[in-house]
């Protein structure tokens, strides 16, 4: 809890935000997906500093790894931009910045508004438990939820990625 810790954190938080802004403002979709991964990595370092190593590892492997893979494969499965459209896209891109002043205004408002002060932090006694203990003993009910949602996800992949394109086209024609 020294001065260094805070400075380090602010620096990382700024990097985190910068990566996020870059993700949003960059023109190419692929770069945007990579920007998201960079944001994840910044968050991972922040989690490590906050003494949450396991959550950090999860964030790094799943969010920076798996989700980026999902995004990149989605991008590659859908149509790559043709060259004639690039110019048109650049024109469209300019339109995206129209609302940027609004974003900057909101950011300024947050920065200069009365900051949220925690009136009485640490009013609860600190508990010394390990993650394993909490995850397996205190939150076992959530684990059932996780099993359920993973099963649901499996069915989602079965239902949504079924390549019955012929059937889909037939339905379209019926409309």
């Amino acid at each position: 809890m020294t001065f260094d810790f805070n400075m380090m954190n602010i620096f990382l938080l700024a990097l985190f935000l910068a990566a996020g802004v870059w993700t949003v403002l960059t023109s190419r979709l692929l770069i945007s997906a990579i920007g998201l991964a960079v944001t994840s990595i910044m968050l991972t370092i922040l989690l490590f500093l906050m003494k949450a190593p396991l959550a950090g590892v999860f964030e790094l492997s799943v969010c920076a790894g798996l989700i980026t893979v999902v995004f990149i494969s989605t991008i590659s499965l859908t149509k790559p931009v043709e060259k004639s459209e690039v110019l048109q896209l650049k024109m469209k891109r300019l339109k995206r910045f129209v609302f940027l002043p609004l974003l900057l205004f909101l950011a300024a408002w947050v920065l200069f508004a009365k900051p949220l002060h925690l009136t009485n932090p640490a009013q609860v006694p600190v508990e010394q438990t390990t993650l394993q203990h909490v995850l397996w003993f205190a939150r076992r009910f959530d684990l059932i939820g996780q099993i359920l949602i993973i099963l649901t996800g499996v069915f989602g992949v079965i239902v949504l990625f079924k390549t019955k394109t012929g059937q889909a086209e037939k339905q379209d024609n019926e409309r």
Binding site: G145, I149, T152, L160, K162
Partner: peptide, 17 residues
């Protein structure tokens, strides 16, 4: 989230547009 995700898939069940 469990019931929400299940209902997303059920809505998109027939893959209609």
């Amino acid at each position: 989230e469990v019931s929400a995700v299940a209902s997303f898939i059920l809505i998109a069940f027939n893959n209609g547009k």
